Every structure is written in structure tokens, then in C-alpha cells.
Simulated assay, not measured.
Amino acid sequence: MGTYLAYDYPLLGAFWTMLWLFLWILWFILLFRIIVDIFRDDDMGGWGKAGWLAFVILLPFLGVLVYVIARGKSMGGREIKHARAQQKAFDDYVRETASGGGGGRSHADELARLSELRTRGDITEEEFRRAKALVLGDDAPSGSASTTAADTGATPRG
């Protein structure tokens, strides 16, 4: 019986079966990506999501085709936005964990933020020096003529 099976199912038939199986699996992957994209889209309201979901589930082949035509271009943008948000969350987690996990910012983070503020022109050079001295824990910020005893924590002599 085994030898007759090889003759009844030629190589071209096996090729077509594998092709249809591949396309079927590809369609399922696309269907699930579309369902995830429907729920991920913050711009679409609840009724829009419900409508697209019903369309994609009740008329699967037509629904997937129409969704890809109508909203396929923005699917990539939402995917990139989601990937960037995940990467930022991961980077923030690594940064927080590496700095001791105390919930506070490290000196390097504070100095980088101060440098960015100075570069944008939000703070002056003098304000940058005072803030840098506070971050680094110096007792008296250098170069500040307007620093009072209350600013440095020293007691006035009298």
C-alpha cells in the first residue's frame, strides 16, 4: 500500500500542499497582528475597535484584507511607537537598577539633566554651577557672590 501512496501523491501535489499550509499560517499570523493592532490603537474609539474586531472575526478573509488596505500604513507606525515605548521602559528600569534602585536619580542623571537645561538656555551658567555644586555635595557653591549663610547651611558669626 505504501508504494501506491507515493504514486497517488506526486511531488507537485506536495509542493501545493506546503504552499497552502504556509499561506494559511501566514494568514493566521496576520490576523493576530491585526487584532493586537486594533486594541493597541489609542486614536480609535471603543465602537471603532468593536466594529473592526467584529468585521475581522465574522468575515475573516475580507476583514483582514480591508483592514490591511485601510489601516495597514499606520500599523507600522504603531508598532514602532510601541517598540520605542518598551525600549524606553527597559532603559529606565536598567538605569534605575544600576543607580541603586532607591527611586532617586543618580548624580550622572542629574548632571546630564542640568547640562541639557543649560544648553537649551533654560538656566544660566551661574545657576548651572550652583546646582552642580549642590548635586555633587559641595558645602559652598563656588563663584556665587550672592550665596548667604542660609544657602550654605553655615551659621553666621557675630
Rank of each mutant, 00 (worst) to 15 (best):
M1N: 09
M1G: 05
T3K: 08
L5C: 03
L5F: 07
A6L: 06
Y7G: 09
D8E: 15
L11P: 12
W16C: 08
W16M: 09
T17R: 10
L19N: 11
L21V: 15
F22G: 15
F22A: 14
F22C: 15
W24L: 15
I25M: 14
F28N: 13
F28M: 13
F32V: 03
D41H: 07
D41Q: 12
D42S: 13
G48Q: 08
A50M: 11
V56D: 04
I57M: 13
L58T: 01
L58D: 04
L59W: 12
P60L: 08
G63R: 05
Y67D: 06
V68L: 13
V68G: 08
I69A: 15
A70Y: 08
G72L: 12
K73G: 04
S74T: 11
S74R: 15
G76E: 02
G76R: 09
G76N: 06
R78V: 01
R78Q: 08
I80K: 13
H82A: 02
H82P: 03
R84Q: 15
A89S: 13
A89E: 12
D92M: 14
V94Q: 08
A98V: 09
G101L: 06
G102D: 11
G103I: 00
S106Y: 04
E110T: 00
E110W: 02
L111G: 01
L111V: 06
T119R: 14
D122I: 02
E125M: 04
E127P: 05
A131C: 05
L134Y: 08
L134E: 08
L134D: 01
V135R: 00
A140G: 07
P141S: 10
P141T: 01
T148F: 02
A150W: 11
G153M: 04
T155K: 12
P156N: 03
P156E: 14
G158E: 00
